[in-house]
Amino acid sequence: MGNTRGCMEQRVLFFYANKVKPFESAYSIKGEERTVMQAITVENLSKTFRVKRKEKGMRGSIKAIIHPHTEEIRAVKGVTFTVEEGEMLAFIGPNGAGKSTTIKMLTGILYPDGGRVEVLGIDPTKKRKQLAYQIGTVFGQKEQLWTHLTPNDNFRFFGAIYDLSECETEERIEELSERFALKDFIDTPVRNLSLGQRIRCEIVASLIHKPKVLFLDEPTIGLDPVVKENVRELIKQMNREEHTTIFLTSHDVGDIEKLCRRIIIVNDGQIVLDDSVERLKRHYQDKRALEEIIVDIYRSEGDG
């Protein structure tokens, strides 16, 4: 797959959403599309939150009851992109850019206001449960494990949630605990584990049902450099061995550099860039680090 991209390097490199549709970017080579399965297709997706505004104090409260004043916040404004099966994609942007909103619409948590989403050919708004069997999610800041139980009990619970038989669950736990090196603490209650051990368990819990797409929302947040490296290595391995599609959001440039070949940058609810990490770096040869490049893009977008 990597070499198919090589031939496209002559094409225009940057696609700003307001100028060129990123959908027609480096990935859509005619003729190629038919052979590569799309894991995620997003077309013109948008989401608006209506927020009630209230003035301070008693008077404001009464005013709000009599004449409620609502404000619309357009979190996502017509986002379009596709992700191929087996791809590792970084979906990044500054705080409040609409990353989480997008990832939540892809996983069926939020209901979109407009546009179309398909993950593995399934519409999350219509067949949420059916989709849930095929995807895994890790939200770095929200825990899904029961902290008073051991990882082992937790995995069994998730096995039950995904309708695996006990025998299947057993096998899968064996396999994953081997790979993620959980053996030493698999029978220790989660609340007694270190953050690094916990996040490994979180990831294993979300992999118990062999998801085809894995959504990782800031998976390495708060981890020390060694554990971060370890987690990245494991994610990479998952992608290689089980051909899992990885959809990653992170503020950690290391995650992006180490894991992803392709990067989508969103800002203010729109895609401002959709390209390969490699070419992004080559274009900004004067800058040494990817971090600087990203900061630069955030800033220039913020000004515009």
């Binding site: 069926g108 948590i109 849930a132």
Partner: peptide, 11 residues
Amino acid sequence: KLDSFLVQPKN
């Protein structure tokens, strides 16, 4: 806090 329930393939 409903997120984690919404990504599970259960009611």
